[in-house]
Design a protein around this nucleic acid. Structure first.
Lengths: 107, 107
DNA sequence: CTAATATGCAACCCGGCGGTTGCTTAAGAT
DNA sequence: ATCTTAAGCAACCGCCGGGTTGCATATTAG
C-alpha cells in the first residue's frame, strides 16, 4: 500500500469549501441522506449540491447508494483518518523542533 | 482577535495542493527558509512558490520575516491545530453514530 | 561604484470550480 | 395510465487559481 502516497491533497481540497464542510457535518452523523434532503435548507440548487457531493465522493469521503429513485449518500471515515495522521506527523515534527531549540537554549 | 471563528475552510483549501503540502513539510521542521531556498529543487518558478507562500500566509499557516534582502518564512502551528480539533469532532460524531447503531442492533 | 542576488509587482494565459438553467429519464403515488 | 418527485446530463457563465514572463527595486558582495 505504498503506492497510495501523496494522495491527501485532494482530501484537503475537498474539505476546503464551506458548503462541503456542512455536508460532511451532516453526513458524519451516520444517517444517510438523499440529494433532495441535503438540498433542503441550503440556498443552492440541487445540481450545485450534487456537484459538491461528487467532489466529496472523488476524495473518498462519501459514497452513494442507489435506493429506489433516490441516491443516498453515506459518510466514509478513512480519508479523514488519513489526513488526521498526516497532521499529527506535522505537529510532531514541529514539537520536536521546539524541544531541540529549547535544549539548545538551555545549555 | 476573537472574531476569527468558523474559518477553517480556507485552512483546508490552503493544504489542498501538493506543492503547498511540501512547503509545509519543510517549514514545520522549525528552521526558517527564504523564498529562493524554498524554490531550490522545485521545478516551479520563484514567483509560483511565492504565490503558494502567500496562500499559506493568508491561511495563517506561515508568516514571513524580512531579514536583509531576503524574506524568511516560518511555520505557524495554530491553524493546523484548529483543523485537527475540527477533524476530531467529526470522527467523534461518527464513532458515536456507530455505537448507537451497534447498541440498536444488539437489543 | 558596479555587479550580483533576493524579492516585489503586474500583466497575461488557461483550465477548472462554483453555480445556474433546461431538458430527459427513472420510480413512486393515485 | 398519469402525475409527481428524484435524479442525471449537458451547456453555459464568471471568476479565481496555478503558472509564466518581464521589468523594477533593494540589499549585499567585490
Amino acid at each position: 500500500m505504498a503506492a497510495k502516497r501523496q494522495t491527501r491533497a485532494p482530501v484537503f481540497a475537498a474539505l476546503g469549501d464551506e458548503t462541503r464542510l456542512s455536508l460532511v457535518a451532516k453526513l458524519c452523523g451516520g444517517r444517510p441522506y438523499s440529494i433532495s434532503q441535503l438540498t433542503q435548507g441550503s440556498k443552492l440548487t440541487r445540481q450545485a449540491i450534487t456537484k459538491h457531493l461528487r467532489v466529496l465522493e472523488s476524495a473518498g469521503i462519501v459514497h452513494s447508494v442507489r435506493r429506489g429513485r433516490e441516491s443516498r449518500f453515506e459518510f466514509d471515515p478513512q480519508p479523514i483518518e488519513g489526513i488526521k495522521q498526516y497532521l499529527d506527523s506535522v505537529s510532531e515534527q514541529w514539537d520536536q523542533a521546539l524541544s531541540r531549540l529549547k535544549s539548545f537554549v538551555e545549555e
